[in-house]
Amino acid sequence: MIEAEGLTKSFNGTKAVHNLTLNIKQGEVYCLLGANGAGKTTTIHLFLDFLKPDSGDALINGISVFSSPVETKKALTYIPENLALYPSLTGIENLAFFAGLGGEKQDEEFLIQCLSEAGLQQEACRKRVSRYSKGMRQKVGVALAIARNSKVLLLDEPTSGLDPAASNDFAMLMHRMMERGSAILMATHDLFRAKETGTRAGIMNKGVLVEEIYTHTVSHSDLEQLYLNHMKG
């Protein structure tokens, strides 16, 4: 569902992503690990067609994001580190607007159901987003994925800044999305959450995917050691 084929992108001669090849299937959560500047966000931006690659291709559901950006964007939902919602609108109104842009039905009952599935309590749905915590805003993003019936999620540091409880909630939510058949690419610093949430993890260093691991095959400390070894190397 999410594929990269020899994807390369440079900025001023520095390779931000080099010859990246990925294949994330339905029902998989792929955690992209790496230090700041490793190329995680650049990879996500390439999948969103915000950046054009120097070479290679990025595909969503087998379709190139560079040749068919409108079609591929219809199939995915992107949740950035800080999901900016409109503070003067309620959660439902924000969701209705974004779902409407994607051409989804805006029936209020349906939207409340999506927000509930995403873990937002009913009374919060009608509150202005200015009163939402970061965790609640991220849930609106997930509700959008549910409303749009997106089978592809691109998440950029979604748990950064969340308290442990909210982070745990979000991890459980990702499990539910995975069970719904979504393919999820999540860029993160959080090794613990990657091990808990991800089915696979890829470690990036200086734009290169240096190792891929099935998370169930390693312990938390093994994963941390592997990561640190690559960062030192």
Binding site: P69, K73, L76, Y78, P80, N82, A84, L101, G102
Partner: peptide
């Protein structure tokens, strides 16, 4: 407000 990228991700 960084809404711009989010909107673009929705194909706007």
């Amino acid at each position: 407000t960084r809404m711009y990228h989010f909107m673009r991700s929705l194909g706007v």
